[in-house]
Design a protein around this nucleic acid. Sequence first.
DNA 1: TTGTGTTTTACGACCTCC
DNA 2: GGAGGTCGTAAAACACAA
Length: 224
Amino acid sequence: MDQAVLGSQAYLYATQTHNQCIIVNQIDGAPSGDGSKPVKRRRKRRSKGSSATNGEDVAAIGRMLRKRKLTDEQMNMLEYSFENEHKLESGRKEKIARELGLDPRQVAVWFQNRRARWKNKKLEEEYAKLKSQYDTILLGQCHLESQVLKLTEQLSEAQSEIRKLSERLVQETSTNSSSSSLSVEANYTPIEFEFGPDTNYNIPFYMMDNDYLQNMEYWDGLYV
DNA sequence: TTGTGTTTTACGACCTCC
DNA sequence: GGAGGTCGTAAAACACAA
């Protein structure tokens, strides 16, 4: 089995025969050449169909060497820390890294990713909220449109009734003027509509635009 | 067991701020 | 110019249905 430099926090063991690697969190005080800093051991992992060898694309190799799954305890501590403050000053980063036995870089990356997840979640929540508002408005619009339809029908009927009554009035007036001395006013019968000034239109105030208000004035004038 | 979709860890590129 | 941020993405780890 080969052992290769991976990073300050992990060893990578790989078998060339299986073309696999296992990454293990760093053992504190991992052996180093001079005993100072932990040895960075890295071994390149071959991806499918890759013919990478030593000295080839370092960036690609770096990408292949990763994944140090954090323990539950580390995760909990990081989450707790994130709840307190989403940003990470260098002092705090060092402190967290020390306490959890992680590389400061790992802590920084974890916070970056956590912020991204948090942002996504916020966006999803915002989207759900806006969608709900939109649906409510859509429903209101449908309701109002059906009301408009109904009222338009009523208006048409009322206009037709007015026309008929006017015609009748004209007819009666001409008949009466020749056969009776009674005045038109005396025979006048008030016109009854299906709806009047007391009708509850059920239209919210904010929907009362200029046209609507003008129509109201028109109908109010008619009933004065 | 395996194929597939999702989540997590890590990195490079680029940007902003001091 | 360096530190730390976001964004996009690769790939390991994981979950789960078939």
